[in-house]
Amino acid sequence: MADEVLAHRTKMTRLSPRQRDNIAGYLFTLPWIIHFLLLIAGSMIFSFVISLTRTDLLTGWEFIGLDNYTRLYNDNLFWKSLRVTAYYTFALVPMGIVVGLSIAVLLNQKVKALGLWRTVYYLPAVVSGVAVAILWSWVLNPRFGLLNAGLRTLGISDPPRWIFSETWAVPAFIIMGLWGAGGSMLLYLAGLQGIPTQLYEAADIDGANRWTKFWNITIPMLTPTIFFNLLVGIIGSFQVFTQAFIMTGGGPNNATLTMVLYLYRQGFQNLRFGYASALAWVLFFIILIFTLGVVKSSAAWVFYEGELRR
């Protein structure tokens, strides 16, 4: 036994330090290697293969080439779900940035009890999931809901029917999304506090007013944070699911049929796993295109302090 240990040890010492580090590196990252090979790379290949078949996982597999993709192209519901998701994303993300940024700017005015304000505005962003979807399905209830009670108090006698109305269902989801905008507020607040005060002092000497300072110092210095929120917001909003699933089930008349809800319906309810996989790939490419678009555009509008020095 002792001999074995000794033999093992001498074998170990025979390896050079570099070789030992190579082995250690791959041993430490083993969880991620398995994760990557099985759950990412392997699954992506498998997912593409499934998207070329017709299968319910029970009765067998039938290879049908790109049929799922051509059918998707001719599927009105797919286009509907794309429109719904795009509408939601491109309304919520910019509005979320404006709301989050506005709160952060207000909180950055040397307010008293900053911690308390921050907690209140951040709180809705902490809670999420099914419980919040249920809460909001009642908040948005046309008869007994909080929102319409508020609107009636403001003198609107005939408020929208929100999640029961084809026109107002997506706006209702957007309002609900804005309620959680406090999450990005924290990032903007940290960004604001990181802006060097010398910049403002220099602007004061030049006689700049608040407004010019805001547009010429604050906003440019915050563009990296805005950029980050834009990216995360687009990626997250395109995958919206829980609200639609819990609150409307995609209705009324598919007005809230989001892409992931449609994917879930086709895959796990209609057992059309090939079709759902094709849908997942299309979703991936749509997200990829918008992400790359934002990244490409960033050279024109995102300002990195570091670049100045070069």
Binding site: W32, F36, L39, I40, G42, S43, M44, F46, S47, I50, L57, I235, F238, Q239, V260, L263, G267, F273, A276, S277, A280, W281, L283, F284, I287, L288, T291
Partner: peptide, 20 residues
Amino acid sequence: ILLATMMLPAQVTLIPIYVI
């Protein structure tokens, strides 16, 4: 590569992982 995988939406691998 690890950073790049953060862009992948979970839905793409949802079904194959379920099948496995």
